[in-house]
């Protein structure tokens, strides 16, 4: 009679524990072996897949890590670790869009996680790096497009201005022809008689000549003024359009007063102050059981997520990609 061997579930659990031991010792090959056996016995346990994915991640075998994460997520779509590793694997393939989606999801799921498995900061750093790269590429593209648009608008406006200017000159020269106008610069080449003749000849038309000349000057003035106004307005419009892509300051209310960095997982204390969760918990553990700013007594279980600030941060980051810079 064969000795009773535990159920497949128990055997698989045992193999997983073995795998974890190997993993801790850095024996990745043996760990992968153990997890693979566990998966063969019980392919429906997501943790076996994510643990093996973690080994593949450590060995930079991203294709395999990706496959295991997809398996795990099919079993359970709320696994922080699987979204995180999958995000990293996709980053390796330069699939920035999908990668950041999974990292974002991992960050969402990881917020408020328990101390032992808390990986928000780790996820944040990877996400920030990816988002920053993404922003750099997009911002450069936007800048180029805006510059090109601005240049061609300038050319069009310049053309229009020159056309109008020419029309005005044409108009005036027609007028000049009508009034028998002669270029005064040529006066010096004329004989005295001619000069007096010129003046006499010119005299009768003087009034209307001046009026036309003044009207022409006023029109010219108006035309140039309009053109300059439009140029200024265009500068302003493009300046505003480019503003979100110019790195600036993250507002203080979106930063933890201890880390002085933008919030990843903001929590609020009974005193009404918001801190970065991991930083506040570290303070409560190492420094003392008090609110760092108000010094009111504070215990870890009294802090609550600040969802409004979390959303405000998300909105700010979606509009100011430069703020992902670490």
């Amino acid at each position: 009679m064969a000795r009773e061997i535990g159920s497949p579930e128990k055997q698989a659990e045992f193999l997983k524990d073995q795998g974890n031991q190997y993993f801790k010792k850095g024996k990745l090959g043996a760990a992968i072996e153990a997890y693979t056996q566990a998966i063969d016995l019980c392919p429906k346990v997501p943790a076996f897949w994510t643990n093996r994915a973690l080994c593949y991640k450590k060995r930079s075998e991203w294709d395999k890590a990706e496959r295991d994460c997809l398996k795990a997520l099919k079993l359970d779509n709320s696994l922080t670790k699987a979204h995180y590793i999958l995000g990293l694997a996709l980053l390796e393939r330069e699939q920035y869009h999908d990668a950041t989606n999974h990292l974002e999801k991992a960050l969402d799921l990881g917020r408020g996680g328990s101390a032992g498995s808390y990986m928000v900061e780790e996820i944040w750093l990877e996400l920030a790096k990816a988002r920053y790269t993404e922003w750099q590429v997009e911002a450069a593209k936007r800048q180029r497009q805006q510059r090109e648009l601005k240049d061609s608008l300038f050319d069009l406006m310049m053309q229009d201005y020159e056309n109008k200017l020419r029309d005005l000159k044409l108009e005036s020269s027609t007028e000049q022809a009508q009034f028998g106008y002669r270029d005064p610069n040529r006066v010096s080449h004329l004989t005295d008689e001619e000069v007096s003749a010129y003046h006499i000849e010119r005299h009768p038309v003087k009034e209307s000549q001046v009026t036309a000349e003044e009207r022409r000057k006023a029109e010219l003035f108006q035309l140039t003024g309009d053109f300059q106004d439009r140029l200024r307005t265009m500068e302003e419009v493009f300046d505003k359009a480019g503003a979100p892509d110019r790195p600036g300051e993250v507002p203080d209310y979106l930063c933890c007063q201890i880390s002085m960095d933008i919030f990843r997982d903001p929590v609020i204390t009974p005193s009404g102050v918001t801190y970065e969760r991991s930083i506040l918990l570290e303070h409560l553990c190492k420094v003392g059981k008090f609110d760092p700013i108000t010094r009111a007594t504070l215990h870890p279980e009294q802090v609550a997520p600040n969802l409004a600030v979390k959303d405000a941060v998300q909105t700010f980051l979606s509009q100011n990609g430069w703020a992902y810079k670490m």
Partner: peptide, 8 residues
């Protein structure tokens, strides 16, 4: 600087 330090 000592006992009453706060990270804030």
């Amino acid at each position: 600087l000592y006992d009453s330090w706060s990270p804030a």
